[in-house]
Design a protein around this nucleic acid. Structure first.
Length: 307
DNA sequence: TAAACGTGGGG
DNA sequence: TCCCCACGTTT
């Protein structure tokens, strides 16, 4: 390691101090800048945590709450989910978008039944092997269901880590090692919750509220006067801009799946249902994509329906 | 590694 | 109406 690289990294002792400050803020804040009202905060049921975190992927939490309740009411265990046809899962998924998440959740439930006797595993590699469970969700399950000392890096945590701890953009492995080192011993759950809340409600993307931040005096970016470019841009875990939705295949797919939740879509209805009455080829191609992904099936009459 | 993948709310 | 935004994973 070069001398410049060494001086660019904050000493482990200071990193741990920032972690302790964040965890302490989460416990002492009183809720003013926390999201204690979220229903999954009060559960440690690993299946419920897996469901809530999968629903939360790329989705605002306010929209996750009703889906979380109806999903767990219908599928209270992984076995219940695995035993149901995918169509039932997709109907419970209504309004959530990114329907591949629902398919992957169904597959994950089946894998939990087959490989883990119906119990969500508390092992990182086993979790990562489940469909739809990536680096964030696997560690969220470990921290929030099993209170393990692992750090979680989503878009909000990614901002905090890049701005406050190092003051520069981070690579994924670097961010993960950093956040793991910040977890106060035995405080995986409360540290993770506090970190996510801090990122979502204080260290916001466009207009961070540094005056309300528990680490403002230790934050490299804040202390430096928040210079541009924002170190969070392009840093590990931080969301990037998406392709335009209006007019996209995604929009047509969404329309088709929404219609399929109500009933079958005949071959002559696909184009109009997808929103492209003048482009049958495109509609057919997108419909085939849904079939190929297992999100729809074609019955003997050629109509599209949910699996 | 870039691109695909949905939806609803707010300004 | 249009644009921006929001607690990732897969190929």
């Amino acid at each position: 390691m070069t001398a410049s690289a060494r001086t660019a990294v904050r000493p482990v002792r200071q990193t741990r101090a920032i972690g302790a400050a964040i965890e302490g803020w989460g416990r002492a804040d009183g809720g003013a800048t926390r999201r204690d009202d979220l229903p999954w905060r009060s559960t440690r049921d690993p299946w419920a945590v897996l469901v809530s975190e999968t629903l939360a992927q790329q989705t605002q939490l306010s929209r996750v709450v009703p889906a979380y309740h109806r999903f767990l009411a219908e599928f209270p265990t992984a076995s219940d989910c695995a035993a149901a046809p995918l169509g039932d899962i997709l109907r419970a998924w209504r309004g959530m978008g990114y329907n591949r998440r629902a398919r992957n959740l169904h597959l994950a439930a089946a894998a939990v039944v087959d490989r883990h006797d119906g119990q969500v595993p508390d092992d990182l590699d086993a979790l990562l092997a489940l469909p739809g469970i990536g680096p964030y969700t696997a560690r969220a399950i470990l921290a929030f269901a099993f209170d393990r000392d692992v750090g979680v890096v989503d878009t909000n945590a990614g901002r905090v880590l890049s701005r406050a701890v190092e003051g520069r953009s981070l690579r994924p492995a670097e961010a993960q090692a950093l956040v793991d080192a910040m977890v106060p011993s035995g405080r995986g759950w409360s540290f993770g919750q506090a970190l996510l809340d801090l990122g979502a409600l204080v260290c916001m993307s466009r207009t961070p509220v540094c005056g309300a931040c528990p680490v403002r005096r230790r934050c490299r970016w804040a202390v430096a006067g928040r210079p541009e470019p924002d170190p969070a841009k392009g840093s590990a875990g931080v969301s990037t801009v998406q392709a335009r939705f209006d007019g996209s295949d995604r929009q047509g797919r969404g329309r088709l799946v929404a219609a399929l939740r109500t009933g079958p879509v005949g071959p002559d209805e696909v184009a109009v249902t997808a929103g492209w009455p003048g482009d049958t080829d495109r509609a057919r191609r997108v419909a085939e994509g849904l079939v190929a992904e297992g999100l729809a099936v074609r019955d003997p009459a050629g109509a599209l329906r949910l699996p």
